[in-house]
């Protein structure tokens, strides 16, 4: 088992939380993992990415080779497209939120962005903000996206729910519940689609 995942978004959108949850879930299944993060300069409203590699065998490089990523998980639609050069052309999945984070003057038309995404062979685009709000708070949008990506990650669903419980436990019962619902809702959306 090997999954190479690019996580994408804008500084402050919570992609590292997604990385942590996948990481905890993967470790609980006895998998190995490497996860490189972006710190510093790029966090002030700039684009951020993280390379997450999980495998049943030992992992050499901290960076995913170009054209070999099994998945792009993005919490922002334009950001998901920034890394399509990394995606495996045959089998790679792109899972992205459809909610733009518009903090630049030349942000493109959402239609155009979605049109590009929909050209890819395997994708899920999801209105994560709306679904997260329906579950209780827009803050859980990143976990909705994770839920939508979860069927393609080769990890048991229960491992994700356990990971959410352990990662959010410090923040209290309500936050755990919210995120579990968000995960479920994202998952259901993806499953209905495919």
């Amino acid at each position: 088992m090997k999954k190479d995942i690019i996580l994408a978004g804008v500084g402050g959108q919570g992609i590292l939380t997604i990385a942590t949850i996948i990481g905890v879930a993967a470790l609980s299944e006895g998998l190995q993992l490497k996860q490189s993060e972006v710190h510093g300069m790029s966090q002030r409203g700039g684009d951020v990415q993280s390379h997450l590699r999980i495998s049943s065998k030992s992992i050499a490089s901290d960076l995913i080779p170009e054209g070999k990523a099994d998945m792009i998980i993005s919490v922002e639609p334009m950001e998901s497209l920034r890394y399509v050069n990394m995606l495996d052309k045959g089998n790679g999945w792109l899972v992205s939120s459809m909610n733009p984070f518009n903090n630049i003057s030349d942000y493109p038309d959402l239609e155009e962005i979605l049109h590009e995404i929909w050209k890819l062979p395997h994708y899920v685009t999801i209105d994560a903000d709306k679904i997260a709000k329906e579950q209780g708070s827009v803050k859980a949008a990143n976990i909705v996206v994770l839920g939508a990506a979860s069927p393609y990650l080769g990890i048991q669903y229960e491992s994700f729910t356990d990971a959410i419980k352990s990662v959010f436990s410090k923040k209290g019962e309500d936050i755990v519940k919210l995120n579990l619902k968000a995960l479920r809702a994202g998952r259901q959306y993806a499953e209905k689609r495919t």
Partner: peptide, 15 residues
């Protein structure tokens, strides 16, 4: 290996 060609709609997002 090569991935997909970069999409033109993607704009820079500097910090």
């Amino acid at each position: 290996a090569e991935g997909f060609d970069p999409a033109n709609v993607v704009k820079g997002r500097p910090p």
